[in-house]
């Protein structure tokens, strides 16, 4: 059988029992087996059922992505794994906090561009802004690049959160 060697970016949703070490197992699996993590996002999503949702962005050939999914599913606290890239394309969003410092024209320009990106200002001093911007990772990349010449100081990103479109749950 011929191997498909194209490396493709995939977003995986992993529902896990919220127990100590669950995240370490997932992360350790990636480092131990030599897979990439491009972004990772985790939080409890159901307090009563003690479940957390991990959203992982990784890349690899279709075979590697299949292996990653199977290896994840094998972990005892993992309940379900879904490849959002292959399902009815999911919605992906990321949030970033971006600190920009500057004065005069730079400041005005940063503010003007932030409006184009629908970023909101969550902190202001005389020398700086902190913008909050949400959207697809590529939009955040673009916004960060736009801020770079305007006094970009610091970036904090959440990593991708993703969910399938339509009425059904994963």
């Amino acid at each position: 059988m011929s191997k498909d060697s194209r490396i493709v970016r995939h977003t995986l949703s992993v529902i896990v029992d919220n127990e100590p070490g669950a995240l370490a197992r997932v992360v350790g699996l990636f480092s131990g087996r030599g897979y990439n993590i491009e972004s990772l996002n985790v939080a409890e999503v159901d307090h009563t059922a003690h479940t957390s949702r991990i959203t992982l962005v990784t890349s690899g050939t279709p075979e590697v992505i299949d292996q990653i999914q199977a290896q994840l599913a094998r972990l005892v606290p993992v309940q379900r794994v879904l490849d959002l890239t292959l399902e009815t394309p999911g919605v992906e969003r990321e949030l970033a906090l971006i600190k920009v410092a500057g004065s005069a024209d730079q400041r005005v320009e940063a503010m003007r561009i932030s409006q184009e990106y629908r970023a909101s200002v969550v902190d202001t001093t005389l020398e700086s802004f902190i913008f909050e911007v949400a959207g697809e990772p590529s939009k955040i990349d673009a916004f960060v690049e736009a801020m770079r010449p305007l006094g970009l100081v610091e970036v904090s990103r959440t990593g991708v959160a993703a969910i399938t479109k339509g009425a059904a749950a994963m």
Partner: peptide, 13 residues
């Protein structure tokens, strides 16, 4: 019994 063994090293039909 372990799905992660399928297609790990060798593609199977």
């Amino acid at each position: 019994i372990d799905p992660s063994q399928i297609n790990k090293n060798v593609r199977v039909d």
